[in-house]
Amino acid sequence: MELRDIEIFLTLAEELHFGRTAERLHVSPARISQAIKKQERTLGAALFERTSRQVSLTPAGRRFRDDLLPGYRRIQEAIAKATAAGHGITGTLRVGFSAAWCGNLIVKAADVFNARHPGCDVRIQELPLNDGFALLRARELDLQLTELPAGEPDVITGPTVFSTPRALVVPAGHPFAARSSVSLEDLADVRLITVIGPPRYWLDFHLPSHTPAGRPIPRGPATVAWQEVLSLVGAGKGVCPTSALAADYYSRPDLAFVPFRDAPPIDYALLWPPTGQTPKVSAFVQTLLTVAGRHG
């Protein structure tokens, strides 16, 4: 089995979607399907279960993925090291993050990256909530890890690093705080704290104006900073959707984080300028993906 075939299998095992896998690898869905069928014939075992609605790994597929991943990551690391040696990865790499959990992962990746490339200094900076693309556009950052969607024509969306379920942060004394979960339809019965500045498509996904059934969602105060969002929620001025990971990073006695049972997850991806895929950026991307895999 060639390295490209291994890459196709592992990418499909991560995405569980032929279209997204093809998009990431810049090939057609038919090419992905042909490669998987060839692998299954060679191995004599089905690796994926396919229905009209979903793709999932078979037990044999899960074992194959778990056996391949360590070796594939070592190959990626070896390629990154060889690239660094050939191109001289030095200077400064400026990396941004949009949430504390993204920053935590970037710090871990930076430690690994610095050990491999001691001549390159990684500087890490938090992104403003109200304009998550400003620093990238101003070339004050080389790379950032942020939540999707990111439909900007002058920004390249790289690989998705991880996804998280969503939760609703509410005042600790709110009736929703006693629930085990909430629905997107419940947003019609509360006031939503909103953010000033992000593009409309971003707001529609994270802070929608209507429920899936079309009911309007009342608006509460608007702000430009995450800590202000939490303070407004704690003061009883409204509620706000966020990542479920926020409960681990922003726990406060005046707040409660209630999981959504029907909201789509939040994907976090790497972004860079159109001309920004330099050897330094490519090497850090590979390091970050490896570190993210090790930490689940």
Rank of each mutant, 00 (worst) to 15 (best):
L25W: 13
K38L: 11
P216M: 03
P216W: 03
P216N: 03
T58S: 03
T11I: 02
A269V: 00
T278L: 11
E40H: 07
P212Y: 03
G214Q: 05
T290D: 11
P241A: 07
A109K: 04
N104Y: 09
R191P: 02
A35Q: 01
K38T: 15
E40M: 08
I75A: 12
V122S: 10
L68D: 02
G91N: 09
D5W: 09
P29K: 06
Q286G: 11
E152W: 06
I193S: 00
V161T: 01
N114M: 14
N104M: 05
P70H: 12
R261M: 09
H174F: 03
C240F: 15
D262Q: 09
R116P: 05
R4W: 13
V155P: 06
F113C: 12
S28L: 04
L69T: 06
Q227G: 02
T242H: 09
I75K: 08
G86K: 15
L232C: 02
F284S: 08
R200E: 14
R65G: 00
S28R: 12
R50D: 03
G71T: 08
V182C: 14
T223H: 06
A167N: 12
G119Y: 04
F18E: 08
A100Y: 02
V239R: 09
A283Y: 10
E40T: 07
T92Q: 13
P274I: 10
Q277D: 15
T92N: 10
E140T: 10
V224A: 12
L203W: 01
P274A: 12
H210K: 08
D111N: 11
F205W: 08
P165K: 04
T90Y: 02
D204E: 15
A80P: 01
T83F: 09
H295R: 08
F113I: 12
R261N: 12
T278C: 11
R179Q: 15
G71K: 04
I89M: 05
E140Y: 10
A167K: 12
Y250D: 11
S181C: 14
P171I: 09
D254F: 06
L135H: 14
D5V: 00
E185V: 03
A256K: 14
A283K: 10
H210S: 06
Q76I: 02
L136R: 05
L127N: 06
T90F: 05
V95C: 07
T211V: 05
I193D: 01
P264W: 04
T90I: 05
R252Y: 08
R50C: 06
Q34N: 05
P264N: 09
A60P: 01
I266S: 01
S282N: 10
L255H: 14
T287K: 07
V161M: 00
P59T: 00
E140P: 03
P253E: 11
H210L: 07
I106H: 05
R179M: 14
A167S: 15
L10S: 02
V229C: 15
Y250K: 05
E140W: 10
C240Y: 15
V285C: 11
K237V: 02
E15T: 09
V258N: 12
I156T: 15
P264M: 06
L192I: 14
S231M: 10
V55M: 04
D66K: 00
I124A: 05
G236T: 09
Q34K: 07
L136K: 05
R74T: 08
L10E: 01
P279F: 12
G88Q: 12
D121M: 11
V27T: 13
A213F: 04
L12E: 03
T275Y: 11
F97H: 13
A256N: 14
T223F: 09
T92H: 13
I36P: 03
V182G: 13
L10W: 03
S180R: 15
